[in-house]
Write a protein that binds this DNA or RNA. Structure first.
Lengths: 341, 341
DNA sequence: TATATTTGCTTAAACGTTTAAGCAAAAGTA
DNA sequence: TACTTTTGCTTAAACGTTTAAGCAAATATA
């Protein structure tokens, strides 16, 4: 027997024979309401199990206190961890978050944007799907005048706030490390160049290769979606080369895992025959044999900074402040797959 | 230069010199509005880039078309996959979902419930945190009169709809498989009994052990949080036993992975010396060496069924229908870790 | 032609809040 | 005492929709 009708501010007002406005003010601790009334209101509110109706508040105030978040998937440790720290910061500031997944699909991403705008979120924090090249939906967010913050997978052309790591520099770190281990022929299994972060990783790889005077050959560098299967396929291609590489830098951990499988299956010793480095520091990198060297992206920091950037934006809505581009340094976590014994 | 003011139904009304009510009806294809007017309204709506305000609609209708979902974490494949299929079904029915994570914390779970209720969701679909024993917050949902559906981690006492797999039977399958492989001394690293699903797995294990007349000893059965570290610790304990088991059934894949690490480190051959079975069919089970036998929980089906159960509930809100308890059969995926060579 | 029905709208209230404006009573000040 | 200020409320409008009720004109029916 749930009491069908939710209790409203008016019910409290009737119970105390005062106006609804007085109740509202009492609940918000307005100085012009007497202590007595406030206490009475709070008592009755508890008694009737009053819960404010967010929809009414949001409608009246023109502010929903909701932030929409779009991620490609939640099942990677990186995104789930970003979400966690993001939520923590935003909750503290009185915001709640709505998480949506694009599943790396452009269409789904557009749907998500529509859903979020329809839900009247006060802002959107997003990491773009791999597929996304058409930015008109993101322009739509901007044209609504609500803050848009991108993280990890961003896009310079959009001219919005961005939080991510220094992918270019990460590639330099990786190649440097491999060179120090004695590698002379380093291959790169990369993501698609059209995605900025993967392009930066490729650029970093190429520049580092040149810097150390290592062979730079087309056959040593490929693009893919970086799934596990892609990693397997690209690794097989590399093994079929006349001159095999002695190290492979894979721009994603799942693809690195696929590559490792192929190497293991072919009895090629990692790291002695071929050294391997991944990217993203997914938990499994420290669980497989051998453990995989990878790049830690400081997901907690990224989540926190993205949230804080959003909060800054709403605080200074009027001021046309300059864009925030926050680029964090990543960290190379050296494990067995790249270590010289 | 974003046009600060969003266009409303009134703007369209003014532009056409008709009433707001007519516009609303035109947009909803009311038969009492002329074709001409409808076309004009749609034209102007597009021209002014009109987007309906969900808050107003929801407030007026007393229905938000939002469904809240609470999961322990999103970063397991199981939950992320449940969410995906759930969302698909609900979107088709005109609902959007708000995902929240409890991080296995009771406190966070309560916060999430409050947030969702405050956001005026039309229902909540949840999988409970490991910690949760106090059900008062869930009672709160019920008392609001909105549907509550539990999945995976449920609780019988609550008397609400539930979707999950047959954990008891899964244990029977696992033990049967191990017996068929020739195992005579099977240990169980389980979850905490207070969580129903883990209790069922333990019951299944015990009943199966008895059925096959295998030794049932206290030292062979333990409870834990089933983290990777728990798995390591419990496996070490088992190795220190005077009479080691020849098979270990672990109630979670992460813990099974921990156990596998310990076995590998101690040069104990899996499956020849000790056979190993996990639970959950996380992707990494097929990626490690040896691949781990596990239980597939049909996450897509669980998500779909939970969503459909919710939709049934709202459709038949008035009818006091009987409870839905949907128990799916799981599937044993046999891999190298339990196979007789 | 007179009446009934249908068409195509309008008016006004409602959903549950917040808030600007205002007003009477109480308290303070000269 | 006569005023100003403060206190503690109330009234009413607003946020953007939806919808019941109603009304005039057009159309159908007898």
């Amino acid at each position: 027997m749930a009491n069908k009708k939710r209790t409203t501010i008016k019910d409290i007002a009737n119970a105390l024979d005062i106006s609804a406005a007085a109740v509202s003010k009492a609940l918000h601790d307005d100085p012009r309401i007497s202590k007595n009334t406030k206490e009475a209101v709070r008592r009755i509110a508890k008694e009737l199990n009053y819960q404010p109706n967010h929809l009414a508040t949001a409608l009246r105030k023109g502010k929903s206190n909701l932030v929409g978040v779009i991620v490609p998937r939640t099942n990677s440790n990186f995104f789930s961890s970003v979400l966690e720290s993001m939520e923590e910061i935003l909750n503290k500031a009185g915001y709640n978050i709505i998480i949506t997944q694009s599943n790396e699909s452009f269409e789904k991403e557009c749907q998500n944007i529509d859903t979020l705008l329809y839900t009247q979120v006060d802002g959107i924090i997003a990491s773009m799907a791999n597929e996304t090249v058409d930015l008109s939906y993101y322009e739509k967010i901007k044209s609504k005048g609500i803050p848009l913050i991108l993280f990890d997978r961003g896009e310079n052309d959009l001219n919005v706030d961005y939080v991510g790591i220094n992918d270019y520099k990460s590639s330099l770190m990786i190649v440097k490390h491999l060179v120090e281990q004695g590698c002379k022929r380093i291959a790169h299994i990369g993501g698609y160049r059209r995605t900025r972060i993967f392009n930066n990783r490729i650029r970093g790889y190429i520049d580092a290769i040149k810097k150390y005077n290592l062979p730079f050959e087309d056959s040593l560098i490929t693009e893919s979606s970086l799934t596990l299967l892609d990693g397997r396929k690209k690794m097989m291609d590399l093994l079929n080369l006349e001159k095999r590489p002695d190290a492979v830098y894979v721009a994603g951990d799942y693809a690195a895992l696929g590559a490792l499988q192929v190497l293991n299956e072919n009895m090629i010793n990692v790291p002695n025959d071929i050294r391997l480095v991944g990217f993203g520091n997914e938990p499994f990198t420290s669980l497989v044999t051998p453990t995989i060297t990878s790049i830690e992206q400081h997901s907690k920091d990224i989540g926190r900074l993205a949230a804080e950037t959003f909060l800054e934006r709403v605080a200074q809505a009027e001021l046309k402040q300059t864009l925030n581009k926050i680029i964090l340094d990543a960290e190379l976590i050296i494990r067995d797959s790249s270590k010289t014994n």
